[in-house]
Design a protein around this nucleic acid. Structure first.
Lengths: 355, 355
DNA sequence: ATAAATAACGAAATCGATTGCATAAAGATA
DNA sequence: TATCTTTATGCAATCGATTTCGTTATTTAT
């Protein structure tokens, strides 16, 4: 266990007979050091096997070249791709990424926020826990000038960066698609209505029905807690038991939609003839289930990339904290067999270009 | 942008007329400070809103209460659950988790190792990139007494902690199951043979065939590069084109297995009657595909938990660096319809108890 | 009662990099 | 030549917590 000594700028300073300040500046390509000296120092540093101690730099600068991520659960396709996108971009810029999962609990989110804050992260990427309705725990970051990027599940009243999709239009398009396929009674699997994404998808659903003169039936709108497989099954069961069951379902996620497909199939309901189904997210299971689940793509990795970029490009000088910068990404309908009653391939774009 | 000043131990020291040393000790419950004083100081700290600056402590201690993770890709079910398990355990202990993905590239793995090393992580959890065959980039951690836990994809010759499943037995059991279901010509989707997991699964496969007196046919063993959906399709296609096609497939992962199911189904091959299939991992898609894919469970989250524990419990004093501590977790066969020719539910355990 | 041990706390160095200010040398301008 | 810049570098403080050595009281032992 012979722990090797690390080389510091002091070692280099001694070896080259320069002061530590000069070494530091040279290594950071500070222009006040002549190119010749810079070269000498950088070469020596490389040769001596110097490795910057980022902890020391972080302490001095009071920021740690680290991006913190707060999400509900890592092991969900959308979330893991989102994280992947953040990591990808951050690492290219030499930043580390710290993750924390809330398991959709408000209390965990608060604790994680504190932990990340104490870690002196230089930026935060957040997708809110299902439970969260109060955003006070994010104020500490704002007070310290640490940029926050909310992704996908964003708060209603909190000035910050946002990276989202157009949930309203996406919900509208998904529902419209079902209508165009001949559905007259379309059910909706809605998520918690205090979470923007679910609220807006539902609004889009209602708008589409309204526009096409179809009635809004509260019986056909099921509000889920977690949009889980189990919940999907239960909801499908009770929908199919109705005297006048729906002929279409727009689900706010793929898990519940797939669950519906499987339950319906098992009970002799033909998909899409008797029941057309469309989900949301384009998780891997969407293309595996039989019949394939039509859905709305959710550009997770790209959202992660952009979120990280927002943090990296954030500049305290140019930042106006009274303005929310919102980035809206396009989604696409992916039409598979679960909703395709009329034989005609189509792929539609939803949403607006980047704001 | 009025950035609030943080409270330090010096502020507390001044307020209470103690020295910073005493404050530090009291906050760390050092026994050389009287209980009375400790209480006074801790109360004051709380009241003043003191928050320890972990960067300062990290610099001083030269370790950062952070666990680094190196994996191939975050957005894979097994990996994201693994990470989830590490995060879960680490956060409970007040540790942060930094992630880095190699995308299965050796070069990225080297760079990530350097980045994590420079971040002064206090422990490392690694699942090797597909490409990696040289392990020199991990030596730096050993030299600094930083514990490394290899999970799942582990190196052959590198003394360290390991958390794995019994791939050999699992492969054996999976194959045996197919044999018991009446398969006579079982194909194998093998992964890169320099990666322990794939090599051992194949060995288990061969052992089972041998034990039951079935011939080993090289034509039926397909070595994959990435075990992707595409590769699975291609392999299935050529297998089914053989004059004497296989009646069973043991795939080293679920993705390729599901791909095989879908391809075979599409081409009129009945599953499991004509072709019985079993996969590996128990990814979500395994229970979604129709017919449901039999597979081998891979206790990902638990492996993550244990890996984190190994790091947290690691003690430089008691550690003997000439010994590899290996933890082997149980796997289970999950029998679904894709392999069930004989009507009889079964679930078998594979592997040994924790070492 | 006196030496020895213990308890409770303080002074100051340390971890390694950064940076405002000072300084010296070289070049430019009048 | 004298003055003013500009260039290149060093000095020393700083970030905040930890820790090694001490230094006083206060107990305990003899």
């Amino acid at each position: 266990m012979s722990i090797k000594k690390e080389i510091t700028i002091y070692d280099i300073a001694k070896a080259l007979n320069y002061s530590p300040s000069t070494i530091s500046r040279a290594l950071n390509n500070n222009r006040s050091i002549s190119k010749k000296t810079v070269k000498i120092i950088q070469d020596a540093a490389k040769e001596m096997g110097y490795r910057p101690n980022s902890l020391a730099a972080s302490l001095r600068n009071n920021r740690s070249n680290t991006i913190g991520i707060m999400i509900s659960r890592i092991n969900r396709p959308f979330i893991s791709s989102l994280i992947s996108g953040v990591e990808e971009r951050a690492r290219k810029a030499g930043y580390n990424v710290i993750i924390s999962q809330s398991n959709d609990k408000y209390e965990n989110e608060i604790n994680n926020a504190k932990a990340l804050y104490d870690s002196r992260i230089s930026g935060l990427v957040v997708s809110l826990a299902m439970e969260t309705t109060d955003y006070g725990h994010f104020q500490q970051f704002v007070d310290q000038g640490i940029p926050i990027v909310f992704v996908d599940r964003v708060p209603e009243n909190f000035t910050s960066y946002r990276v989202i999709i157009d949930n309203y239009s996406s919900g509208y398009m998904a529902t419209k698609h079902l209508i165009e396929q001949g559905c007259k009674r379309i059910a909706h699997f809605a998520g918690a209505q205090h979470r923007n994404v679910y609220e807006e998808r539902k609004k889009g659903y209602i708008e589409a029905l309204t526009e096409y003169g179809l009635p809004i039936e509260e019986d056909l709108i099921v509000e889920f807690e977690t949009l889980s497989f189990e919940e999907g099954k239960k909801a499908t069961k009770s929908l199919l038991k109705m005297k006048n069951p729906p002929d279409g379902i727009f689900s706010s996620n793929d898990t519940a939609a797939v669950s519906a497909i499987m339950y319906a199939k098992k009970h002799g309901v033909r998909i899409p003839q008797d029941l057309a189904i469309i989900g949301f997210n384009d998780d891997p299971i969407a293309s595996i289930v039989d019949p394939g689940l039509s859905t709305v793509t959710h550009p997770a990795t790209k959202m992660g990339n952009i979120s990280a970029s927002r943090v990296l490009e954030h500049s305290t000088e140019t930042y106006d904290e009274s303005i929310s910068e919102v980035t809206i990404l396009n989604t696409k309908l992916v039409i598979r067999e679960s909703s395709q009653r009329i034989p005609c391939l189509e792929t539609k774009k939803v949403g607006q270009p980047k704001a």
